[in-house]
């Protein structure tokens, strides 16, 4: 009996999840405004930051290319249960992430997801980056370049290793669009004209960038 109930419940849950994900972007845009999301996130591109002060004045990351950056399934889930992405508090070197991001209820999360996924950038080519644990990409990420000095990822013993100033890349393959990772490395001015991460254009070849993007995009939950 208990089993049947669980099954019935999951069916209802699944049905409601799919119905909410078919909501429309316009409704999501309204929710985004009404819930105060726009107080901390701007959604109209191109990038506005010109100076360090501009970057530090922001209260949250820009979302004008969210549809090219995130994976839809991750976004829908995160909005209902936002877990810290950046180990440090946004724009702070001294404080930890307070883990207090506003939450959205199921239906609102569905429509806001549709709205955010509609915000795309023409600067992200699709189908270029196939996630793969490739030795060249790993070499760049962990040895040749300082990526691991600023980004957390899952180490060999399934422990979290790496630096804290950049967004955590633990399970980045579930969160980020692989093609966006490459575009982010290749076109720093488009997405982040002013950021604490060094520009690698001219230091890494397009091939190297593709390899490291493939490596990062392969960060997925390990099967136990």
């Amino acid at each position: 009996m208990k089993n049947i109930l669980t099954v019935a419940l999951s069916v209802v849950f699944l049905a409601s999840a799919t119905s909410s994900s078919s909501a429309d972007p316009a409704a999501g845009k309204t929710v985004f405004g009404a819930k105060g999301c726009a107080d901390c996130h701007y959604t109209d591109g191109p990038a506005k930051e010109k100076t360090i002060d501009d970057q530090l004045a922001k209260k949250g990351p820009e979302l004008w290319y969210a549809g090219s950056k995130f994976q839809k399934a991750w976004l829908a889930k995160w909005l209902t249960d936002p877990k810290p992405i950046r180990p440090q508090k946004f724009n702070s070197l001294t404080e930890e992430n307070p883990a207090d991001h506003p939450k959205l209820a199921g239906a609102d999360a569905g429509s806001v997801t549709d709205y955010l996924m509609s915000l795309t950038s023409a600067d992200v080519a699709s189908g270029k980056v196939k996630p793969k644990n490739n030795p060249k990409g790993r070499q760049i990420f962990t040895k040749k370049m300082p990526c691991s000095g600023c980004h957390q990822y899952t180490g060999r013993k399934k422990n979290i290793v790496g630096g804290r100033s950049g967004p955590s890349l633990v399970e980045a393959g579930v969160r980020l669009n692989p093609d966006w990772i490459l575009a982010y490395l290749q076109k720093p001015k488009v997405f982040k004209p002013v950021k604490m991460m060094p520009v690698f254009v001219g230091l890494l070849s397009d091939k190297d960038m593709t390899n490291v993007a493939r490596y990062v995009a392969n960060f997925k939950p390990k099967k136990k």
Partner: peptide, 19 residues
């Protein structure tokens, strides 16, 4: 902005990346 993340706010080599 750029250096303190590793070298620390006062340059003592103790930024938040140095775990």
């Amino acid at each position: 902005f750029y250096c303190s993340q590793c070298h620390g706010l006062e340059g003592k080599g103790d930024g938040p990346n140095v775990t």
